[in-house]
Design a protein around this nucleic acid. Sequence first.
DNA 1: CCAGCTCGTATTTTCGAAAATAATACCGTT
DNA 2: AACGGTATTATTTTCGAAAATACGAGCTGG
Lengths: 237, 237
Amino acid sequence: MTETMSESAIRPRKEFGKTVAADITHRLREEIIACGLAPGEPLRFDVLRERFGVSFTTLREALTALTAEGLVDAQEQRGFRVAPVSRQDLVEVTDARVLIEVELIRRAIERGDDDWEIAVISTLHRLKRIEQRDPEHPLRDPEWKIAHRQFHQALVSACGSATLLAIRADLFDRAERYRHLSANFRPRPRDKAGEHQAIMQAAISRNPDLAVQLIEAHIRSTADNVATYAAHLLDTE
Amino acid sequence: MTETMSESAIRPRKEFGKTVAADITHRLREEIIACGLAPGEPLRFDVLRERFGVSFTTLREALTALTAEGLVDAQEQRGFRVAPVSRQDLVEVTDARVLIEVELIRRAIERGDDDWEIAVISTLHRLKRIEQRDPEHPLRDPEWKIAHRQFHQALVSACGSATLLAIRADLFDRAERYRHLSANFRPRPRDKAGEHQAIMQAAISRNPDLAVQLIEAHIRSTADNVATYAAHLLDTE
DNA sequence: CCAGCTCGTATTTTCGAAAATAATACCGTT
DNA sequence: AACGGTATTATTTTCGAAAATACGAGCTGG
């Protein structure tokens, strides 16, 4: 291994054009969502500094941003920790998601143009292809996670409100963390492929009532699954 | 002026128990809402450092937090600026507020206990007393602002969802900034006292449909007022 | 005169040391 | 042995200097 083939050649220190802080925020977010950092776990600067190779200040900025997203919990003068999980929080996130997502899907169906339809169809197509490849543990496949996120994002993208989309994105991340939490204990994935297909068809055929009903069922049944199979992690807090 | 009567004796550097960063975040937030820092204005570190007497790092943390709240706009590698205003953004904030506030007032009316009723009644009482004192320009009175905020906060406080309350609070702040924007050009305050009274009564008498209707009208008419009297500030951007 | 380039300046971004605060261990007294 | 207070250590928080980046003036060649 030569000198020129240093670490930075293999994995760039940061994405192009972005600040280090934004990059660290992104990496920390993904790790918290995937429960690589456990809920409630203290986030000590020494440890993170070692792991990510950045300074106190940069970390602090990243943790502040994640606190606003509800993934990190700041305790004044006593540092940060991964946001704890609880049954109550799961219920709140689920209800908030239903409230907002239902509104956004209605607006998207009303306003969506050809590009929107294409985005919905193509993101679902990609998602299904990835599912065929490894139908067992989709959440463990980073590509599936991204495709899944993008499909749901595409569905509401035409709603016309950047404000509500930003709120929705934060809630989606918080919900995804709960899915990861229960993923290891869930016996088998539900028939998500079928649900996604049905939602897509309702959206494209401009049937808002049906789409809303399917989306709400999709969100709530996922949350129920989490509440059931991660019960031991939610009650003991 | 003696040495012991230094600046810190007159105004403490920070509130008790809080970090400097949290304090600066708070002060910057208030100043942006009050349009003491104009929409779109660049937030240069040298200037802010001078004004608030803190370091780069602390400022950066505060600005990051406010970016998440939608009051500051971060431009990668090119610093921060006060979030711009626009007609589109005003519409988005208004619609989002209606969506969420309507839901929360329903839940609060359903779940509110005695303490909730007392909080609603007493915060309104305080608000009315302050209005009597100076009925001309309520927004210029910091006490009125606080009382007004607390009344609306009290109304929904019993909703049972910290998650939605946090989102609501951010949207309220963004809307309040628009109110300040038009305050200087608005001919006369509307009959807010009457509206608040009616909302309070609908809530306390547990009439959710009426309360929802009044709240939505309250929010939308305020926004319409802003759109009318601050039109010259919204279109030229 | 203008377009494009280069270099100097202004500004942001990142860093590690120093100060402030909280947590813990220790010790003497009852 | 239990309690209270104090010193020590661990950790967070804040700072200003140094590095990185963007902005703008001035120059050169067409």
